[in-house]
C-alpha cells in the first residue's frame, strides 16, 4: 500500500480537528460572532506556524522526497473568482458549519446526516463544472 502514509496523515488531521472542536457547528457560529478566541487561535497559530515552516524550508532549501525544493504551487491569478467564490463558500461554511475537511470527519464521528451536506457539496461542485466557462474568473 503505497498510499498508507496518506491514510495516516488523514487520521492525524481528523483527530486534531475533532479534538480541537473545529468540526463543531457551534464553534463556527461562535467564531463569526466574535465571541471566542478559540477558532481564531486555531487558524491564526496554524498560519503562523505554516509561515515559519515555509520560511525555514526556503532558507535551508529543504527538499521534498522527490528531490525538489519544498514549495506551494502558485494559485492562479485573478480576483473575481476569489471574491465571489470565497464569499459563496463562506455563506455555506457558516450555514452548514462544515468545510470540506470536517464534513468527512463528522461522518466518521457518526453524524450521518452530514451525508446530506456532502451529497449537495458534490452537486455544487458538479454545477460549478457545468457553468465554469460562463462564469467570470
Amino acid at each position: 500500500m503505497k498510499h498508507i502514509k496518506f491514510l495516516l496523515i488523514g487520521i492525524f488531521f481528523g483527530i486534531v480537528l475533532f479534538k480541537s472542536e473545529a468540526v463543531s457547528w457551534y464553534r463556527i457560529f461562535e467564531m463569526f460572532k466574535f465571541q471566542s478566541f478559540h477558532m481564531y487561535g486555531v487558524i491564526g497559530s496554524a498560519v503562523a506556524t505554516g509561515i515559519t515552516l515555509m520560511l525555514i524550508a526556503k532558507s535551508k532549501s529543504l527538499k521534498n522526497i522527490k528531490g525538489s525544493v519544498i514549495s506551494v504551487p502558485l494559485k492562479d491569478k485573478g480576483l473575481t473568482r476569489y471574491i465571489i467564490g470565497g464569499f459563496i463558500f463562506g455563506l455555506g461554511w457558516a450555514l452548514s458549519g462544515a468545510c470540506p475537511g470536517p464534513m468527512y470527519i463528522l461522518l466518521g464521528a457518526g453524524q450521518f446526516s452530514i451525508l446530506i451536506v456532502i451529497a449537495f457539496a458534490l452537486l455544487g461542485t458538479f454545477i460549478y463544472g457545468l457553468l465554469k466557462d460562463k462564469l467570470p474568473h
Partner: peptide
C-alpha cells in the same frame, strides 16, 4: 449549505 460549500470552494 452543502451546495454553497461545493460550488464556492
Amino acid at each position: 449549505g452543502g451546495l454553497l460549500v461545493g460550488f464556492g470552494t
